[in-house]
Structures are given as structure tokens and as C-alpha cells.
């Protein structure tokens, strides 16, 4: 019996020759690196990955990848990726998009992607601002934020991408900040491994137009008290000293103090398939609650491309394809 040794890949194997042109210090660099590290872990050669993006700072990412890439138009990476996946189901398809690209101009595709459940990974880089167009408010900008198009403060409520994805029936939802590179890599691998549309919401700081937007729950000295790691089968505890836990209250979670290292039974053990817990976790709003980080939902259902393929197989078995016969169907007559 012979065993073939699986090729070992390094993150650098997934780099392109192009030099990234994001602003120095942009967290997009961290996400780029994480995507390359995740691909190395996944262990498939670069030709088997395709990265499809829209328009915006984040959407430049495919140019820096050594994989196949398609930098499309504003808001449309999801349908382009859908067509690609249906055409080439063996590919690993990644969508790179931003808050403006996915939630604003491409909102309709975002909504319908989750109904279809094509096997692809949607990475939403959320910096809560339009960076490439130099600082207008985005659909996730916080109310009251002062910016170029809202000099008196934004008067619209922000959209909640995770809540929207859940409402639309996403089969996999995860959330993380770009400042957690190790966890980000892990979630990218999990998103890849999930068969169906995986949605990964990534908080990404824009140093130029919306700096420190996520400091309240990502800054090192306070972050452990302000976000919570969500893991399937693990109790919902958080805090620098793991001294807080979530228990079920009246339609929501209540935060209780616990003794570090001794988790009481009433602290909820997370189940990524439990619709009630998923709803409660995604409903947690900062600063009332810590920001949930990790896989929030993971359920399995048929993918669009598999269902379409099985309809084609069914049609073939019921009506063996014979085009000449089809052309001659219906009433025909001979002219001599």
C-alpha cells in the first residue's frame, strides 16, 4: 500500500508578485495574510482557489493573491462568484467584499445569496466607512458619526450584517476582528470546510477615515471584557479573568458574575445549530453585551449547485437528451 504525501503549503505560496497598495498599517494587510495562511492550511494548490471581489479597498485583494482572481464591479462579486461556482463546482470560491459593496450597492445579492446556499465563502471587511472614495458614511456607520457626507452626523441607523445574514437564512455565520489573526485564520478554514454559503463578518479598522472604530471591543487592554468567544459545545464565558457568564433570561441573555475556573451549570453551553441560541447571540448589541466572536451559526442544507446538478441528472434520466428529436417534436409534415 502506498501513501502519497500531501503537499505542504506555506502562506507565501498564495502570494502574487504584485505589491499591495493599501495605506500603511491598514488591517487589510492582516486579512490578506490570514487568507494566505488559511489556504496553506487547507492544503489545496493555488489554481484550485478563485477570489472574486467587488469594488472598494478590500476588493483589491485578488490582485495580491497568487490564485485565480476576478476584481468585478461595485456590489456584484456574489453573483459573479455564483456563476463561476455553478460552472466550476470543484473550485474553492471566495468572495471578498466590504460594508458598502455587500450591504449597500450589492444588498440585493447579499440577501439572495443565503437563500441559494452556493458553496462559497463571503468575507465582509467591515470598516464602517467608504475608504476608497475618501470618507463617506457607509451602511454600517454608527448613528451620529461625523464624516464627509454627514458633517452634522449620520442620521441613519446602522445596518447589522450578521443579523441580516441570519434573517436571510445563512447556513454559516462567523464574526471576528482583523486584530485576532490566529482566530481569523481558524474561522477562514472553518468557513472553507462548511459546504454552503459561509458568511464571515470581519471588523477591520480604517486608519485614515474611521480610526479606532472598534477599539471599545478590540483594544488589547480591554477587549477580553468586551467581546466573547463563541464556540460550539463550550460555555458562554468572557472577561479578562473569565469571570462573567451568560445565562438565559427573559428572551435574552443575562450577564452574571462567576468564579473563574468554576462555571456554574446555568451558564449556557453554546450550540451553533440551535436557532434560539443563535438568535440570542446575534441579538447581543454592544455595549450592553460583549461582541460575539467565533462561529455563531453552522447548519447543513443542500447547496444550490448540487440541487441544480441533481435536477439536470433527473431530467437526463427522464428525457434522454436527443436534440435532433427535440427539433422534430410536435406536429411535423413532409413537403415533397
Amino acid at each position: 500500500m502506498s501513501t502519497t504525501k500531501q503537499t505542504e503549503y506555506k502562506a507565501d505560496d498564495f502570494k502574487s508578485d504584485a505589491e499591495p497598495r493599501w495605506c500603511p498599517g491598514c488591517e487589510d494587510y492582516a486579512i490578506l495574510k490570514a487568507v494566505q495562511m488559511a489556504m496553506a492550511q487547507i492544503g489545496r494548490p493555488k489554481n484550485e482557489h478563485a477570489v472574486v471581489s467587488g469594488i472598494g479597498c478590500s476588493s483589491r485583494l485578488p490582485y495580491y493573491m497568487g490564485t485565480y482572481g476576478f476584481h468585478t464591479i461595485h456590489g456584484r462579486p456574489i453573483p459573479v462568484a455564483t456563476g463561476l461556482k455553478i460552472s466550476n463546482p470543484e473550485l474553492a470560491v471566495w468572495v471578498v467584499t466590504g460594508d458598502g459593496d455587500a450591504i449597500s450597492i450589492g444588498g440585493n445579492h447579499f440577501v439572495h445569496a443565503f437563500r441559494r446556499n452556493v458553496d462559497m465563502n463571503i468575507l465582509l471587511f467591515d470598516n464602517r466607512i467608504y475608504g476608497l472614495t475618501k470618507g463617506q458614511y457607509s451602511p454600517t456607520s454608527q448613528k451620529g458619526m461625523i464624516n464627509k457626507t454627514a458633517p452634522y452626523g449620520t442620521i441613519e441607523e446602522p445596518s447589522d450584517p450578521v443579523g441580516l445574514a441570519l434573517e436571510c437564512g445563512a447556513s454559516f455565520i462567523a464574526q471576528i476582528s482583523a486584530s485576532y489573526v490566529k482566530e481569523l485564520v481558524d474561522l477562514l478554514v472553518q468557513a472553507y470546510n462548511h459546504k454552503g454559503t459561509s458568511f464571515l463578518h470581519i471588523y477591520q479598522n480604517c486608519y485614515i477615515y474611521n480610526d479606532n472604530a472598534f477599539d471599545d471591543f478590540t483594544e488589547r487592554s480591554i477587549r477580553d471584557d468586551n467581546n466573547i468567544k463563541i464556540e460550539h459545545g463550550k460555555p458562554l464565558v468572557f472577561g479578562k479573568n473569565l469571570d462573567k457568564g451568560l445565562v438565559v433570561g427573559y428572551g435574552k441573555f443575562d450577564i452574571v458574575d462567576i468564579e473563574p475556573g468554576n462555571v456554574p451549570d446555568n451558564v449556557v453551553v453554546y450550540d451553533e445549530t440551535d436557532s434560539v441560541l443563535i438568535r440570542m447571540v446575534t441579538d447581543m448589541k454592544f455595549p450592553e453585551y460583549p461582541v460575539p466572536m467565533g462561529v455563531l451559526k453552522k447548519t447543513l442544507r443542500a447547496t444550490f449547485e448540487d440541487s441544480l446538478e441533481s435536477q439536470i441528472e433527473l431530467a437526463k434520466s427522464k428525457f434522454p437528451p436527443d436534440l435532433q428529436k427535440l427539433l422534430s417534436s410536435g406536429e411535423t409534415w413532409e413537403v415533397k
Binding site: V52, F70, T72, I73, R76, P79, V80, A81, T82, G83, L84, K85, I86, S87, N88, L91
Partner: peptide
């Protein structure tokens, strides 16, 4: 765009 994605593929 789906048709274009398919053509790309």
C-alpha cells in the same frame, strides 16, 4: 453577472 461568472469559468 452570473452569466459572466460562468463565462469566466
Amino acid at each position: 453577472t452570473m452569466a459572466l461568472g460562468a463565462a469566466y469559468g
